[in-house]
Design a protein around this nucleic acid. Sequence first.
DNA 1: CATCGCAACTGTATCGTTACAGATTTGAAG
DNA 2: CTTCAAATCTGTAACGATACAGTTGCGATG
Lengths: 351, 351
Amino acid sequence: MDSKTKNRPQTLPDGGRPTLKTIAFMTGLGITTVSRALKDAPDIGAETKERVRLVAKQIGYQPNRAGVRLRTGKTNVISLVLTLEEEIMGITSPMVVGITEILGGTPYHLVVTPYSAVKDALAPIRYILDTGAADGVIISRTEPHDARVALLTERGLPFVTHGRTEMGIVHPYHDFDNERFAYEAVRKLVARGRRRLVLLEPPPHLTFYSHMRAGFERGLRDFQADAIGFHQTNIDHSLVEIRDAFEVLMRSEDAPDGIVSGSGSGAIALIAGLEMAKKKLGEDCDMVSKSPSDFLRWLRPEVMTMYEDIRVAGRELAKAVIGHIDGQPPETLQSLSQPEFQPPITRGLRA
Amino acid sequence: MDSKTKNRPQTLPDGGRPTLKTIAFMTGLGITTVSRALKDAPDIGAETKERVRLVAKQIGYQPNRAGVRLRTGKTNVISLVLTLEEEIMGITSPMVVGITEILGGTPYHLVVTPYSAVKDALAPIRYILDTGAADGVIISRTEPHDARVALLTERGLPFVTHGRTEMGIVHPYHDFDNERFAYEAVRKLVARGRRRLVLLEPPPHLTFYSHMRAGFERGLRDFQADAIGFHQTNIDHSLVEIRDAFEVLMRSEDAPDGIVSGSGSGAIALIAGLEMAKKKLGEDCDMVSKSPSDFLRWLRPEVMTMYEDIRVAGRELAKAVIGHIDGQPPETLQSLSQPEFQPPITRGLRA
DNA sequence: CATCGCAACTGTATCGTTACAGATTTGAAG
DNA sequence: CTTCAAATCTGTAACGATACAGTTGCGATG
């Protein structure tokens, strides 16, 4: 056999699926040439590239992910790391949708990697690093000094956080402006004549705890209102706990007349506690709540809501990880979504 | 070199990650032996197996997924196929959590594969089949004659459906007993003296449409109530559409006094429509609703809810696909979850 | 003391892809 | 008529794992 054609595929691959070998066979080229033609390498002739691309398209060639991954280490996987616990109010749904909307136009797949105990937050990160399971990672519930961020940065694995950190590391993130949310909430409540305000805040170890508190306190100063303490309770507590604690507060001397709720599901529990204390929302007390879904607006239009669009967050996060993977500088991959009050649901027919 | 030891690894792999080669080097065995020892093959000595397992554990060996996948075709991936559209009320969240709870104890990863247009429901299935992207598939929103089920069965790829089909193919599924739900709902409403009942039903093309209708109609017969038509509207319509249509119905001569809502978010819209027609829930009209989350119970305790536990559904689905992959007969992988009325939220302190 | 069977282990080829180091052709320069 | 460089193309090896077809050593059998 002519040495020049020694390596030309003589047979097609067994399985029905086309590979480089299939294209090489059909075009009469070598496998290497086909591979390089498809990645538009400079040492392949223009006409050859055209021919290869045509055939590849015709037979519906798609590179074998395992082959690529084994050879290059590129997984084409984005890993979404989630706590099983945070799922109470279903923030994951729109997030997954948003992410996949972006990944749909790319070769990336979305893998969901869960962890259970809060102290194990590092475990899935280690797993991904150790096994090279993903090209990029999305994490949420960031802390000011976040061990995951430190580890990922040190090991050079691209990632993006949902929430910011405070450790002097410049990394991609997307966040909701919780400072501004709380500030605007206070403004709104004071405008309604409320001056004794309570905040249902995030757990203190998370970064956005201090954002929200800062906004709240700045609002109190600027608009001259007072804080009612409710520190024993935060949005990570169960709805029953929040409700009961709030009932006690509402029955006390110290009852607030305005509420800022840092979570949509927390708002439900606050309303229940308020009603158990025989108070009426909109009369004895007004409330502003963050809300990632629509049900509050529909069922309790008295509540003033600021919509946190998790779906958009998912899109931003996906774009940011990919940007990071592609080598864009982290500082260009940071975004903050601005809270805005939602209009009430249209009440007219044919709305 | 002695031919007997010709293939013994002389060097460790470059990357830090241990491979079979690493273990072979450390134990002085051949790569093949190590591979077979770790899968407990019968032709490897007991002591050798022990030694290999020990070393593997010590150095934290984990098989390279790309290597396995390339050689064997086994992906260790379960694909969850979702419509981007169905995500309105966030059913995905608890579902993903339930699935990952089960996959956590297995080598499987969960990949989320979305599709957008309803007519493209087959596209992700074809993709998975063509590229061998997964060992098993989870699909939802089944139709009586479901092209995806036909295709997956024909091509022999293990799968499970959330919902049943009616095409004479015995396949794994998990479903909520919608027939019984509607039947019990009618019973409850009639027990409350309601006799003019309306059903907010699923879109007619889905299998559980006929289940729910059948249960509803059986209930009407058994408990002697009448149906009020509401056929122009179903749970896939927008909340605003549902609300407006229901307002019209409630203002008409033909207004119902009892509602069976096939979806939790639909219930929200029905309540809004009812209130816009100046009617009062619990007085002019009672309602039983399916509810995958808690907010209805908290915010509208007048609504009687039957909880559909999507998280459990996720667990059942995951177990069923894996069972199917492992060759268990499909008829042993079918389950139906029984609806039960939920107790009201505990009202006392320290509940 | 050959021969056989068995237990325990190993080498080779392969999955699909790509990095790397050639190989071949062509045409221009000397 | 060399010689050389540029333009194209190609073979080989390797990523990590496993199927398959051996090989080795050893005690039992005739």
